Deep mutational scan, measured.
Amino acid sequence: MSIQHFRVALIPFFAAFCLPVFAHPETLVKVKDAEDQLGARVGYIELDLNSGKILESFRPEERFPMMSTFKVLLCGAVLSRVDAGQEQLGRRIHYSQNDLVEYSPVTEKHLTDGMTVRELCSAAITMSDNTAANLLLTTIGGPKELTAFLHNMGDHVTRLDRWEPELNEAIPNDERDTTMPAAMATTLRKLLTGELLTLASRQQLIDWMEADKVAGPLLRSALPAGWFIADKSGASERGSRGIIAALGPDGKPSRIVVIYTTGSQATMDERNRQIAEIGASLIKHW
């Protein structure tokens, strides 16, 4: 067993022997300050990975656009099909120029040879490739089937209704393509630590998230040396920005953090900075 597999395998073990964890309200002060700075709603939740206990939250049951954070859930659904023998990570999918949508930095380079399901999930999570996400959605039956998968997991909140890039419209009070911080955190925890996926698939999912290449300005920018993070960011219209992450010190994840914001007129750089500052406060008061 590799060191990485050993780390994931021990998560349920540590759950039975973990020391108590305590929240620090200073982080919530920073979350509220971020709302003021951005002139927008901010949703935040911090969940103990082992016990599932909510350590701190702000607007945990308000809806926010999922943006590209849905791609982790999508690849979780794909992996569940792999575990059930209904899909193969090595299966090659061919597509055409007509399938390409905006922001497809990986898939646009493989029009001649296609990409495997594994490569598409990697592109969707690590590079947030939109065409990769659409091709993967097709393999499971579309957005409604992803919503059904989540319902079967016990998540009756999170929903995907449209494809890339339309799902990023982020219209106020529109429940399409939205989640709540509490629902997303719970669902992510189930995918990473529960029995829904095999150990190999849980490890694959967290490996893809750990290799995320487009979330550098967010929580990763505040991460001390030696800390672990596996994450997925998202951005969409109407000043929306978000990130879902499993992180912790000593090279292993111990908490789930979900941050969403929407309705801001601030620049992308400012939205990134506010999320990074929330992360810095979280780490300082860990």
Rank of each mutant, 00 (worst) to 15 (best):
S201Y: 08
R7W: 11
E175G: 05
S240L: 03
A211K: 12
K32M: 10
M180E: 11
T147E: 05
M67D: 04
Q37E: 11
D250L: 08
H285L: 04
L146W: 01
V157I: 13
T69A: 00
M67E: 01
E277N: 11
P172L: 10
A225G: 12
A170V: 13
L247M: 08
D36V: 14
P249T: 02
G154D: 04
P12A: 13
S240M: 03
S221V: 08
K252E: 10
C18L: 06
G226K: 07
D113E: 12
S236C: 04
M67G: 15
E277L: 11
S254G: 11
R189V: 04
K53M: 15
R59S: 09
R63G: 01
L10S: 00
D83H: 07
P12N: 13
R59A: 01
G85L: 06
P165T: 05
R162E: 02
D155G: 00
I259M: 04
R238D: 13
A9L: 11
R118A: 14
E270A: 07
T186I: 09
P65E: 04
G251W: 05
E195G: 10
W163T: 07
S281T: 14
R118G: 15
R41P: 09
V21G: 08
P181C: 04
N134D: 01
S221H: 10
E26R: 04
S68A: 00
M67F: 01
R81L: 08
Q86G: 11
R63Q: 04
R220S: 01
G251V: 04
K213P: 02
V8N: 15
N272D: 15
K252V: 13
A15D: 01
L10A: 12
P65V: 02
H24G: 07
E210M: 08
F22A: 12
V21S: 03
R63S: 03
M180G: 11
R202P: 01
Q86K: 12
G279S: 06
R81H: 09
H94R: 12
A15T: 15
K190Q: 07
Q86L: 12
A211G: 10
L167E: 02
D269A: 12
D250W: 07
Q265P: 12
N173A: 07
P224Q: 02
G226R: 05
D99N: 11
D207Q: 11
K53T: 11
M268S: 05
A182V: 12
F149H: 07
R273G: 10
E237W: 08
I229D: 00
G194V: 04
G242R: 00
Q203E: 09
P165S: 04
R202G: 06
